[in-house]
Design a protein around this nucleic acid. Structure first.
Lengths: 212, 212
DNA sequence: ACAGAAACGGAGCGTACGCTCCGTTTCCGA
DNA sequence: TCGGAAACGGAGCGTACGCTCCGTTTCTGT
């Protein structure tokens, strides 16, 4: 079991091809592209893929690593915005814009399942940032007080669905949806929300479960 | 090819069992339950199913017929409400409550595809009713003016996703989501929506397409 | 130059789905 | 009662997926 830098030249080359191929296909078609399509597009065999990545999940996780850290960076920038509402909303617009561009990212974040190591770590780093964004906007009196951090996944789940349904038909339609939803988040909304937000435990179950 | 009433007694009995079995399983597990599970739960063989319904889609369509007409009834009642906003929102709450109870209905309405005859007819009957609801609420000055009938599927698509994700964890959480979204629909929202609504042609493509 | 370790690739396995085919059983009128 | 039409049921087909296995090829240090 040699260290990562001790790969034979052809192995390193093929690994690169696989990642590039997967990056492209995941972005355009989502993570459900068959592994065979990935290997063919990369010009390698199936065996080669599974020597480098013990599972398809692992490949997904590796390919999306960059996108994950890009999201965390955006969240860190958003937390520092003077206008917390602007920071929060522009973060959401950026993140969901990424979903529209990179369907693989959308699948991992907005769909259930697909919770590999790097995705998990990204979520963990994101959580306190989002909490800060929300707290600040509520302190500044721009975000309704009964919105909670546990409600943020709601935005991703639902936006993901809009993108899935309209991506090939009206690629920017998700902006209309997000705008609508954000208007419901502003302070001064006419109602108070029914039902509590989701607890961390509930969220964990929601993002893991498959059908029984 | 005998008329519908000229079925042999065992055939009529088994057809009833199939529909009952499918109704139950579709409601609890959605339309993705394997046909074999439906036939086993009904105590009949696969051949029996496919003699009565030439395709699984047709079975779905037949089983959901009642739910479809229930929806249309609710829409007709909603149109007549004095307070058009109340009519519109309580219709949405009723419809989405049905989605939470009957996952098969949700799959057909909130998911893409599954567009058989009766579902299609239900949609056609619903369209003018929804248009009236929206027009009236806008005339009464309670629904924002830039919301359009073409945006209604948005509500079903996204609520469907919320239900799918949280049904087993927080069965009423969708109410919180819907409340949030409806607050964004009220007149006096701070923004005007970006991006136009979907045209009928776009909607048709959105509710039909499968992945290429 | 060459041995052998490393990497390769794709046929094939296991699973799950919708649906069909056809030998067997059941019903029902004469 | 009994024959044939009607209905039955489930093994099996075709498809699509993730993944494995192993004979073949390629790289690399000596």
């Amino acid at each position: 079991m040699p260290s990562a830098t001790t790969l034979r030249s052809d192995a390193r080359r093929n690994r690169g091809r696989l990642v590039a191929s997967a990056r492209e296909l995941f972005a355009t078609h989502g993570v459900d592209v068959p592994v065979e399509e990935i290997t063919q597009h990369a010009g390698v065999g199936m065996g080669t893929l599974y020597r480098h990545f013990s599972t398809k999940e692992e490949l997904i996780d590796a390919v999306l690593e960059d996108a994950f850290s890009g999201l965390v960076d955006a969240a860190e920038r958003a937390v520092e915005a003077e206008d917390a509402w602007a920071g929060f909303t522009s973060f959401l617009e950026y993140a969901i814009g990424l979903h529209a561009t990179n369907h693989g990212l959308k699948d991992v974040i907005a769909e259930r399942a697909h919770g590999a190591k790097r995705a998990q770590a990204m979520r963990a780093r994101m959580r306190p940032l989002i909490r800060r964004m929300i707290e600040r906007a509520q302190e500044q009196g721009t975000l309704r007080a009964d919105f909670a951090p546990g409600d943020v996944p709601l935005i991703f789940w639902t936006s993901g669905r809009v993108i899935e349904t309209t991506a090939g038909i009206a690629p920017n339609y998700w902006r209309r949806y997000l705008s609508l939803l954000l208007d419901g988040l502003r302070l001064g909304a006419a109602t108070t929300l029914p039902e509590p937000t989701l607890t961390p435990a509930q969220l964990q179950r929601a993002t893991r479960g498959r059908r029984a």
